[in-house]
Design a binder for these strands. Sequence first.
DNA 1: CTAGGGTTAG
Length: 889
Amino acid sequence: MKTLRLLHECSRQTLFSSISRALASAATSTQLHKLHSLIITLGLHHSVVFSAKLIAKYAHFRDPTSSFSVFRLASPSNNVYLWNSIIRALTHNGLFSEALSLYSETQRIRLQPDTYTFPSVINACAGLLDFEMAKSVHDRVWEMGFSSDLYIGNALIDMYCRFNDLDKARKVFEEMPLRDVVSWNSLISGYNANGYWNEALEIYYRFRNLGVVPDSYTMSSVLRACGGLGSVEEGDIIHGLIEKIGIKTDVIVSNGLLSMYCKFNGLVDGRRIFDKMVLRDAVSWNTMICGYSQVGLYEESIKLFMEMVNQFKPDLLTITSILQACGHLGDLEFGKYVHDYMITSGYECDITASNILINMYAKCGNLLASQEVFSGMKCKDSVSWNSMINVYIQNGSFDEAMKLFKMMKTDVKPDSVTYVMLLSMSTQLGDLDLGKELHCDLAKMGFNSNIVVSNTLVDMYAKCGEMGDSLKVFENMKARDIITWNTIIASCVHSEDCNLGLRMISRMRTEGVTPDMATMLSILPVCSLLAAKRQGKEIHGCIFKLGLESDVPVGNVLIEVYSKCGSLRNSFQVFKLMKTKDVVTWTALISACGMYGEGKKAVRSFGEMEAAGIVPDHVAFVAIIFACSHSGLVEEGLNYFHRMKKDYKIEPRIEHYACVVDLLSRSGLLDKAEDFILSMPLKPDSSIWGALLSACRMSGDTEIAERVSERIIELNPDDTGYYVLVSNVYAALGKWDQVRSIRKSIKTRGLKKDPGCSWMEIQNKVYVFGTGTKFFEQFEEVNKLLGILAGLMAKEGYIANLQFVLHDIDEDEKRDILCGHSERLAIAFGLLNTKPGTPLQVMKNLRVCEDCHTVTKYISKIVQRELLVRDANRFHVFKDGACSCGDYW
DNA sequence: CTAGGGTTAG
């Protein structure tokens, strides 16, 4: 070695300076070790200057063990210079607690620290998030009168920023008598780290106004703030300044530019910057690779990775980004390859990387590999546990998830994410008890104020049927976001409190939250449920304003809303305006036609859909057969039923069979329907027999009706509607014992009857008529009017359908009758409160009964009005004594 | 003082 030879020739003086220079320029750790041995051989290892340089240099090569042995060997006892060096070296290598314990040792041996001691100690406090130590160190800085030191001040700003205590950081900053560019940069990056983009920019502009030239760190932080704000104009201005200062080629700056433009417009500008970069480092590659991953262009990110491998060694972050891409692509093969690469690169112990591996393997469907990674981890954090718990939940292994949760508690503290996942699991399971237990648990841990947790709680309570508790959590929230509102609105819909849902929408607006697509999609079904055309239109307007009208799911729901609100015309309008239509769009239109008895239009639409190359699914076939059935198109309906299997290889499901039974029996082909049922390959359920039974009732075929009734009772259905149907059959036959036993079994099984009700909207107000609502306004007048109408109807030839005049009835049934007639109350009320000649629109939650159907026909003729009645299934337009359904319903 | 990575809710 040339240097060595030279050294021997030199005087002691030149020897010292030569070693100093050699130490400063040592480029590898091997060179450093050689120099170290030389220093020992020459007996210079007690030299404070060389020891300090060695300590720093070893730290530079990430070899804190050697730093430490140099420190011990130098027997430093009371030399603060060496203590500063070692504390600094340890901090530099992330050994914060070791650094702090050495600092404590200086106090024990009563060694006076100097201004050079504190910056590293403060950095160590920041690294450990040790608030207590931080306080005592800061106090000491005050006591020793170091608080105006520039470097200490800078370190303090950084520390408080890392503690997320921006106020304290700001205070230190404002009180500094002298600041340098690092002070400004630290504060700006502190605001950045906490997402306070505007504050970061504000500090930057204050800095600029002083006329100081920012450096590459400043610009990098400012670019990040622009990216965070999504402010393209601001970003372009900064970009211009960077060009002007001439630091565009600086790696830090160009990486900042790259990262900012990657956030703006789907990577187009980002890629351009990347391709033009003169100097790229690992961060540049990683930014681009992650950028692709983040927008879902996983293939692109892997392609770039392959390109990178040839010229640059991927680091831990590259590897983790690629592992995520593998997970999203489900590419197990490549994932395993990258995993091996990660191990050989020595990154196996990185917790984050292992967490990503757990996820990657799970996404690729290899649960075993996930478990292996998890159990092989020497050190787990809460994300590790959460990830594994989530794997089990996604896999449906709920017991395993709970077991792991219990184990987790013995290792690390569960965090808010843990509770969010487990709560959503209990929602899935409908397990209210578990949900409540978790709620108590998380309250104790102080996660009550976490917005995601609260959102999940709102959802959990609502879906488990506890709307009251759901609202309680909702009202107690201090801050709400768009998801909170969407969740509570969906909850209202779930608990069928439509009006509350609508009120929540307006409350949301007054609190300044703009509804989004999800809001629209959750509230629109309310409009169909309520048949609230006005609200529907209002929301439609909102959708236009928000620019969501071209969204396919929104359009699909709008078609449904308008059709259920009585406006087939509007449904067609929405349909025509939609640029993209999927099978759901067409199905919505076909169902709409079906509800209005427009069977021919439905058939035409179905043909157009096929011609447009859209492949119908099983729902589309339900819609078209339903439409045929409601228009008496028996041949066509049967044809579709056969075609779904023949042309589209769709195996008919029970609902298709039910539609066909409906189709045949509605047209009076009861025997054929019964044969069809007996020949079907699936076991007929209550929906199948129920369809036949409804038709029997209409055609008065008691023989089949009784046979079918027995079948239904055998099936023991959960839907009260079927028991009511059967009980009506027995009542009509005068078999009261059976009627009573059915009633009893409904009660013992705890089934609730759907109370029938009707409602209508007059001048933006909804009036509801139904069970127990005798005391509405104008009750007397309504009854009087109904009496008059009854007289007029009798003159026209109306005879009440005696089949439904039941004897032996209790209070319950009397009310049922009243409910059955709730649409009559609504119609009479409407007649009283609208101008002669105006059409009326009445909504009903159940199917319209035979007698009411007849009565409404008469009324439409007597009062010469168009009466539109929407029941649970479809629309009936009564006009001049006839109904649009042609008595198919 | 700098850039890039993990689990969660409607």
